[in-house]
Structure formats: structure tokens, C-alpha cells
């Protein structure tokens, strides 16, 4: 049903926290996502012209890079982009068929491929470009938050995480319940001043982005190297040094 589940107090909101401070833009999360989901709930993640002139395909996670600021104060920021599992997801409410829905139990936004008519309206309604149309199958696809991993009893407890979180070599991706203010992810968001993307549009994304930390540009403890006495043989200061091996 595409009208949204009535929010209950303490609503569970599973999502990702992405740390822009340490993402090095390695694309590991992007290809791990592609790899896992190619055999997962939304399989296949079709590719077009895979060996041709304009290769493209269905990816749930894409890594952009930006520059922030000018000159020396600037820095390069790598920016992974996937579904934010919004609280007010118009991608759900615009859907004419009910194929696009938000789960009441954990807030995950999914597409039911069996009834999607492929009208693409949800992809227009998503400000973040998180919806990927599979021309070949004729249905809309998107990040499932690895619904087939996070509850998967055939996996060891510690492996019940999204593929992109498991793989990230810099631990720039974290998964958890952002509805629970005491969860590790919520605390991290509070501590690091986690941000919403395009808050002005009112989609209230669940996923949060941690802005780059301020650099330790200033010397750890400002020190000036002592100037040695002017002139004179600089070697003399060591002349009487005797050290033992």
C-alpha cells in the first residue's frame, strides 16, 4: 500500500550512516552492492552494452567525487549515493500501483517487482536519484538495504549487515537503527553532527552523512625550532658528544 505506515513512537528506522571524512572513493561498496544484489532479492541488476560503446547498468550505490572550497583550504570529498530510506518518501506515495512501499516494521523502502508497471514516476519523485529503472525487465529497482542479508539466518550474526557496509575498507559506512536515539549509529550522528541531504525538500531521509572533520592544519603543538647561535661552526655543538653503542 503506497500510503505510508502510520509512524509509531520509537519507530524502528534502519538505515546507513556514511562518513564523508574517511571515504576514499574506492568504489568497493559500489561493486560489492552490485555483486551481492546481482544474486539477491532484486536480481538481476541488468547491464546494457556491457562490452560496447555506452556501457551502463543498474547500480544501487554510486560513488561521486566533489571538491569543497578553493585553493589550499579546499579538499576533495568522495560521496557515495544510495537510497536514503526516507521517512517521507514521495517515491512511495506517488506510486499508482502500490509496488513502491515502505515497510512498517523497519522503514525500509522497497519495490514489489511483480506488480510494478514501470511508469518511472517514483524515480521522478526521488530527489536523490536512488531509483534505477531496469529497461530489460521493465520494472523499477533500488537499494533494498540488503533485506536479504540483514535478517538472514543462514549468515553468521556478525555478517548480517549490508554488503556495502561489510566491504568498506575505511569503515566509512555504518548500519543501524536511526529511530533509536541510543543506537551506535544515532550516537555517532549526534557526535559528528550528521546531516540530511536536501532537508529543504522535506523527505526526512533516514540515512545520514557525516561531514569531513576539521583538519589538524595547525601544528599539533606550535613549536619553533630553536635558532642556533649565529655564525660559528655548527658542528661544534656535537664535538664533545660521546655515545655508547
Amino acid at each position: 500500500m503506497t500510503d505510508l505506515p502510520a509512524p509509531v513512537p520509537g519507530q524502528k528506522k534502519l538505515g546507513l550512516v556514511i562518513d564523508l571524512d574517511i571515504c576514499v572513493g574506492c568504489h568497493a561498496c559500489a561493486s560489492a552492492c552490485k555483486e551481492w544484489n546481482s544474486g539477491g532479492h532484486m536480481a538481476p541488476l541488468t547491464d546494457f552494452e556491457p562490452y560496447g560503446g555506452e556501457p551502463s547498468g543498474v547500480w544501487f550505490n554510486r560513488i561521486h567525487s566533489f571538491e569543497e572550497g578553493d585553493g589550499d583550504g579546499a579538499r576533495t570529498v568522495h560521496f557515495p549515493r544510495s537510497c536514503l530510506h526516507c521517512d517521507e518518501p514521495a517515491c512511495v506515495t506517488v506510486c499508482p500501483t502500490g509496488a513502491s512501499y515502505k515497510r512498517a516494521e523497519d522503514g525500509i523502502v522497497l519495490v514489489n517487482q511483480d506488480i510494478c508497471i514501470g511508469c518511472k514516476l517514483c524515480s521522478w519523485a526521488c530527489p536523490y536519484g536512488a531509483r534505477e529503472f531496469d529497461e530489460d525487465v521493465g520494472v523499477m529497482k533500488k537499494c533494498t538495504l540488503c533485506i536479504d542479508r540483514i535478517y538472514n539466518e543462514t549468515l553468521a550474526e556478525e555478517e548480517r549487515l549490508p554488503a556495502c557496509v561489510m566491504v568498506c575498507p575505511t569503515k566509512a559506512r555504518h548500519f543501524g537503527d536511526l529511530g533509536d536515539p541510543n543506537s551506535a549509529v544515532s550516537e555517532m550522528v549526534a557526535r559528528r553532527g550528521g546531516k540530511d541531504l536536501m532537508p529543504e525538500l522535506g523527505y526526512r531521509p533516514v540515512n545520514k552523512y557525516l561531514p569531513p572533520r576539521r583538519d589538524r592544519m595547525a601544528p599539533l603543538a606550535p613549536v619553533a625550532l630553536p635558532q642556533e647561535a649565529e655564525g660559528g661552526n655548527r658542528l661544534l655543538r656535537w664535538i664533545d658528544k660521546v655515545l655508547s653503542r
Binding site: 574517511i22 574506492c26 575505511t170 569503515k171 572533520r213 599539533l220
Partner: peptide, 30 residues
């Protein structure tokens, strides 16, 4: 990669000497 992010979290300073500021260098303090 793993080490650099742990280092940054620890608060150690990371200086990159490189004509280009991408990849690892993107997350350097200086």
C-alpha cells in the same frame, strides 16, 4: 585504507605530499 581511517579517528595527523589531492590524499589533514 583501513589504517588511514583508524588513524584519522584516533586523531593522528596525516600529511600527504602529492601533486594531486585525490584518493588517500583526499582524506589527509594537510
Amino acid at each position: 585504507k583501513t589504517a588511514l581511517s583508524a588513524m584519522r579517528a584516533r586523531g593522528a595527523k596525516f600529511v600527504t605530499v602529492n601533486p594531486v589531492r585525490t584518493g588517500y590524499s583526499a582524506i589527509a589533514d594537510e
